[in-house]
Design a protein around this nucleic acid. Structure first.
Length: 481
DNA sequence: CGTCTTTGACCAGCGC
DNA sequence: GCGCTGGTCAAAGACG
């Protein structure tokens, strides 16, 4: 039958496809962003040689695993084949992780002058946890423990043992609240039960490192700035808090939120999952850019079984459960996209996003289970965000409205009746909604787990303001949709 | 016996 | 240059 298709038809289809691709990748700058995005998600510096003479009998095996990981996880790259090859070669040399870290460290200094490589993003997850470590689905091996200065709890260092070459590590300081900092992206297939967090951290890190966002947030990111989008405020508004602080967790514990913090060293995303579940479900009533509204199930429906996305019999840990409920969760948008009807245009948009996600490091894990999980949609949405200049412009406009051209925070507390800005670092659409929500906070280099730190010093300055007017966001959305 | 954890030593970065 | 600190290594012990 295909042979009967006229050649012009094929050409026409090709052109259509090219247009679609072009729509999302039009400029070189954008292309660079994609490249940087991926290199960051790996967290591997490309320069520098391995000087460490540490014996590693698994090195060769690691190389193979690494390459496999690359094959599985780096399809998202858009760089040239040469670049890819080069990176793969370097990647195969840049192991074990300590080498990576040290190379990255040295590059912070030496490499800064030549080429501003994106610094490795850290994804911090704060979660209440009774156990000493979190069950995030991955296998961790403890390789060290240190008493952190100023913290009565020791900081433990873990490595992912699924693959000897996996760059993801973490350190932990135990208390009621564990702060797990993930650095790097797993370069190997993950257990299904681990993909949630892995994806979340990966997407968050990617989001953080994406110039498309960070440039827009640059006015905030300069000089160690925190961007907070609080959710559990006494009033039914979403509030953006811009704080200037050198500390990663300057927020009172009752501020259940996620935030981005961009320090001068490493960007870190912190997902605060310590919020009571009754208030940390920002998805209720969330505006759905595809359908205009979303059908949100009752709270109890957040369980894995109720959700309907199978995890192949695997259990969901408390942490995973928390993440499932977090605005970062790839699953969270299940409620927003899964039950929505899409018109043609939005369908195209989402299809673009789907296509973009084909190369996501964790896409293979999802695609093996289900044709197209909402996770994919959510994740690819991020891709669409970071690759579509139109959206970036809109985002820039919105943020400028919030922050001001020169980065000064506008003090006016605009009363918002219905609209708010949701910067979902997972890479979701920016959209408006009525309900409470959270978001951003970010920063660093390895994966670490630590207890909640003592109360941080008072913030230097802090100004908050409500979300902007509906008009602004209507305009904002109109640019995009 | 293999795997994992503990723990002291070592190394590198950074500030003074 | 020196000391402090964070991060890592690796030997020894614990455990199943």
């Amino acid at each position: 039958m295909g042979e009967e298709v006229p050649e012009e038809e094929n050409e026409r289809l090709k052109l259509s496809l090219a247009r679609v691709v072009n729509d999302t990748t039009t400029s070189d700058e954008e292309k660079e962003e994609s490249d940087e995005l991926v290199s960051l998600s790996l967290g591997i510096s490309l320069n520098g040689k391995c000087e460490k003479k540490k014996k590693n009998k698994n090195l060769r095996e690691s190389d193979e695993n690494l390459k496999e990981g690359l094959a599985l996880g780096l399809d998202i790259r858009r760089g040239s084949d040469e670049e890819r090859k080069k990176e793969e070669e370097v990647m195969s040399e840049m192991w074990p992780p300590s080498k990576v870290l040290k190379a990255a460290r040295s590059e912070d200094k030496s490499g800064a002058s030549q080429h501003s490589e994106p610094k490795k993003a850290r994804v911090c997850i704060r979660a209440r946890c009774d156990t000493q470590t979190m069950n995030d689905g991955c296998q961790w091996r403890k390789y060290g423990q240190k008493m952190a200065k100023g913290n009565p709890c020791p900081r433990s260092y873990y490595r992912c043992t699924v693959s000897p070459s996996c760059p993801v590590q973490r350190c932990a300081e135990d208390m009621s609240i564990l702060i797990t900092t993930y650095e790097g992206t797993h370069n190997h297939p993950l257990p299904t039960s681990a993909t949630t967090i892995a994806y979340t951290t990966s997407a968050a890190a990617s989001m953080l490192q994406s110039p498309s966002l960070t440039s827009q947030l640059g006015v905030l990111a300069n000089s160690d700035t925190h961007l907070l989008i609080n959710s559990n405020l006494p009033y039914n508004l979403n509030t953006l808090n811009f704080t200037s602080s050198f500390h990663q967790f300057p927020k009172p514990p009752h501020f259940h939120n996620s935030s981005i913090s961009t320090s001068n060293s490493h960007p870190t995303i912190t997902l605060d999952l310590t919020a009571p579940q009754t208030t940390s479900i920002p998805h209720i009533g969330k505006f759905n850019p595809a359908a205009g509204f979303s059908v949100t199930p009752p709270k109890h429906a957040y369980s894995s079984t109720s959700l309907g996305f199978s995890s192949n019999g695997s259990t969901v840990s408390p942490l995973q459960s928390s993440i499932l409920q977090s605005p970062w969760s790839p699953y969270s948008d299940y409620f927003n996209y899964g039950a929505s009807n899409r018109n043609q245009d939005n369908g195209s948009l989402m299809n673009n996003a789907k296509q973009a996600f084909q190369g996501h490091p964790y896409n293979h894990a999802f695609s093996q289970q289900q044709p197209l999980l909402p996770d994919s949609i959510a994740a690819t949405t991020y891709k669409a965000i970071t690759t579509n200049p139109k959206f970036q412009s809109a985002l820039a406009a919105a943020l400028t409205t919030y922050v001001g051209v020169n980065g000064e925070v506008r003090e006016n507390q605009i009363q918002a009746k219905s609209a708010s800005l949701d910067l979902n670092l997972r890479g979701d659409m920016v959209h408006t909604r009525n309900a409470d929500h959270n978001i951003c906070n970010a920063s660093s280099r390895y994966m670490r787990m630590s207890s909640s730190a003592p109360n941080p010093p008072a913030q230097v300055s802090k100004s908050s303001f409500g979300s902007s007017s509906s008009n602004m966001f209507n305009q904002f959305l109109n640019q995009w949709y």
